[in-house]
Amino acid sequence: MTLILGRKKGMTQLFAEDGTATGCTVVEAGPCVVMQVRTQERDGYDAVQLGFEDLPDRLAKKPMRGAAKVAGTAPKRFLREDRLKEPAEMGVGDSVTVEEFNEGDLVDVIGTSKGRGFAGTIKRHGFSRGPKTHGSMNYRRPGSIGCSAYPGRVIKGKRMSGHYGAKRKTSKNLEILRVDQDRGLLFVKGAIPGPNGGFVQVQSARTGVKKG
């Protein structure tokens, strides 16, 4: 599995040769530095920890500065592990760039979705609303939440209003439409979670099979 960390920069469109326009998201990814290597003996599993985007020394915690010193780089803002099946081939201080990805690859993109605060059932679960007029007082209400004496309680997992968004989300099997190696950009087909400027992880798709 290949992992790279980056920031979502925004969306645009690309024209194909036959004139069809495809919406795509631009991700500014890498270069990421291997900050730590996890091994079976020491940690119980194999992984590499990648770091993205420098953090000024004055903002970094002391342990972060120490770890960065070992890797020979500045402390990083965004750290994530790439879990591996075999012992890591990369060592501490190695870098990962967008060159790991090719046009046409399928990827999963993980990000933190936009926070919507305390949201009602219509926005949060797609409930339908009541009539706006004719004396209706049921405009955006959730409706009945269960039966009466039996079971005499609300069933667990009943969809209600509450905090919505700002949660880790994965968009699976998105195609890479273009790789810009000079600027370290990935053009991913379709939308990805999170606001523009949000941190995202791009990794090779777990389940997807390339079409054709």
Partner: peptide, 12 residues
């Protein structure tokens, strides 16, 4: 979002 602007100017 200047990056997106730059990219679009190149693609135009």
């Amino acid at each position: 979002m200047q990056l997106i602007q730059t990219i679009e100017n190149e693609l135009k």
